[in-house]
């Protein structure tokens, strides 16, 4: 057997990248490729920054200039004293820069349980365990989560609780996009991914089915997901870390 190609599928086309940056749901192929390709994630982040700046960037309020500024410019620029002068007594009305309308939730759909079907992971995997895990439960594996592109941190711990495994994830300094959630995934080195669950605030605690091989799905990934009803990975990963078995 040869080693798997570290990146899954083809790179994003520019069209796929700009549509994803605008918030459209990526195709399954894109969702599979992005977690495996830093170059495409970086390109997507560049487009996302542009989109965010246009949609939600801060406006600069114009500030009137003191009298004499135009005269100084006119002199220094070498314009004749007879040059026309701008009428600064007419205060330019503040232009209302365009903004995203409030109806940005127009595309909101009831979020389906964000499950990647297969790999033996049943629907029960995302059910939040009602009782908090006793902190004393022994850790089986753990990961420090580091920011993928910007800031934040977190940790993931797999514990053995009464003979079954549970995954605890907690994050700091990262937030979901407006009208979105943070979702936890397990990635393998072959581009495969498992949806583990949706974080409530900055915490997640879910049971891990016994079939999930942590030697294979060793990467914990936290992504920002729009509530668009698309169960695929948004490709907007914020934190990531490798699970290492506890000694």
């Amino acid at each position: 057997m040869s080693l798997p190609d570290p990146t899954a599928g083809p790179h994003l086309t520019e069209e796929e990248a700009v549509l994803a940056a605008l918030g459209e749901a990526p195709s399954p192929a894109v969702g599979q490729h992005l977690p495996t390709c830093a170059a495409c994630r970086a390109e997507l982040d560049t487009w996302r920054r542009l989109v965010t700046t246009v949609r939600d960037g801060e406006d600069v309020p114009p500030v009137p200039l003191p009298p004499g500024t135009w005269e100084a410019v006119r002199r220094e620029a070498g314009l004749a004293p007879t040059a026309p002068r701008p009428d600064l007594s007419v205060v330019a009305p503040r232009r209302d820069a365009p903004r995203r309308r409030d109806g940005r939730a127009r595309r909101w759909l009831p979020v389906a349980a964000a499950l990647v079907v297969g790999a033996g992971l049943g629907a029960g995997a995302v059910a939040l365990r009602p009782d908090p895990v006793p902190a004393a439960a022994p850790a089986v594996a753990s990961a420090e989560l580091a920011p993928v592109a910007s800031t934040g941190r977190g940790s993931a711990t797999v514990r053995d609780v009464d003979g079954h495994r549970e995954l605890d994830v907690s994050v700091q300094g990262v937030t979901a996009a407006p009208a979105g959630v943070l979702e936890v995934w397990l990635l393998d080195s072959d581009g495969g991914l498992l949806a583990v669950g949706t974080m409530a605030g900055d915490q997640l605690n879910v049971p891990l089915p016994a079939d999930v091989d942590l030697a294979r799905f060793a990467t914990v990934d936290v992504s920002r997901e729009p509530l668009d009803g698309d169960p695929a990975h948004s490709s907007d990963s914020v934190l990531r870390g490798e699970l290492t078995p506890e000694a």
Partner: peptide
């Protein structure tokens, strides 16, 4: 970022039609 926004909005205004309308819908009408 504020300077970027000035540049981007100004260039958005300079797009011809129907590109400008299309892009405004994508940006601001979601």
């Amino acid at each position: 970022a504020a300077a970027d926004r000035i540049v981007l909005l100004a260039e958005l205004e300079r797009l011809g039609e129907p590109q400008r309308t299309v892009l405004r819908m994508a940006f601001f009408d979601d």
